[in-house]
Design a binder for these strands. Sequence first.
DNA 1: AATGAAAATTTGACGAC
DNA 2: GTCGTCAAATTTTCATT
Lengths: 186, 186
Amino acid sequence: MTEHGESARGEAESPSAERGRRGAGRDRGHADARLRSHDLQLDERSKAIIEALQHDGRRSYADIAKEVGLSEAAVRQRVAKLVENGTMQIVAVTNPMQLGFQRQAMLGLQVTGDLAPLADEICGMEQVDYVVAAAGTYDLLVEVVCEDDEELLALLGRIRTLPQVLRTEVMTYLKLWDQRYNWGTR
Amino acid sequence: MTEHGESARGEAESPSAERGRRGAGRDRGHADARLRSHDLQLDERSKAIIEALQHDGRRSYADIAKEVGLSEAAVRQRVAKLVENGTMQIVAVTNPMQLGFQRQAMLGLQVTGDLAPLADEICGMEQVDYVVAAAGTYDLLVEVVCEDDEELLALLGRIRTLPQVLRTEVMTYLKLWDQRYNWGTR
DNA sequence: AATGAAAATTTGACGAC
DNA sequence: GTCGTCAAATTTTCATT
């Protein structure tokens, strides 16, 4: 079944399906904003389904069904809906460290001018995995993942060269303590 | 993703399976550090497998096999190994916004004393989804996801009350631009 | 890594609540 | 609209090479 595979990402283009928290796909605005957060009211069983899949995205529907007290078909339908909604997506997430990316950092950028085009340009850089506009000291927060210091240095050079970037602060990661993705079920 | 997540930061039970990037699980130290990043050399087919699963974590092995030119069994074995290693994990990631968490922020903390116990305590707060020790202006970067401003305010109150926290800067998220999780295959 | 057979799961359709 | 049952198709598992 390529299917469910497909359906799962089928809409890859589908908005929220594209991202979870950091590390999830890359969706930006939600294309289908039909469903607003306040419209969503998950019952306990859907939450349980999400929790199960947050632990193991390939767990069988039958297995989950037994756990939450629904039929396999019901679980399947709910998962499909959650994915269509963009409420959830099932994906592989990789470990940068294990893959040889040993230098991660958060960049705090103070910029001038229109944020959108700048953000787009920065998003286009392959070492960048997270770009968010913020209110506070920095206008843009950018998380980057590099193989080593040399790559980070080169990246900083490119970013600082951008005309709109006034100041760049580098917050090098020393140790990652915690990271979660269990929204909606806490 | 304990895998990469985990390996990155922990060895949760399944290491990387527990986290991707932000938003992935919550692994911290890697128990099975057998595999160090520099030991890892993925061939093109494993990369292709990872890429396929990054798009759709439930895609069938048979389907992937056709695409990468391996047998189903081979794909399955490689995936199992990648997950065991903590290089990758397949999980559901949810969209905070869609689930009613409309206030996200990055907190920059300046602290004193031993970082570890403080980081652990902050990790224990349910609104916290990402804690990283950094070099720079802030000792600790904490990403939080709240339902609303009231919850954020309450959380800030708790954090600022902690004896070790000298200063807290709040960088409220205005717009999420990009978020990726395709490490290892860029 | 690949093959083949057995077991389990997913899929799609249909009916019921 | 959501759920459950059922049979068919597909996939996964496991032993084997």
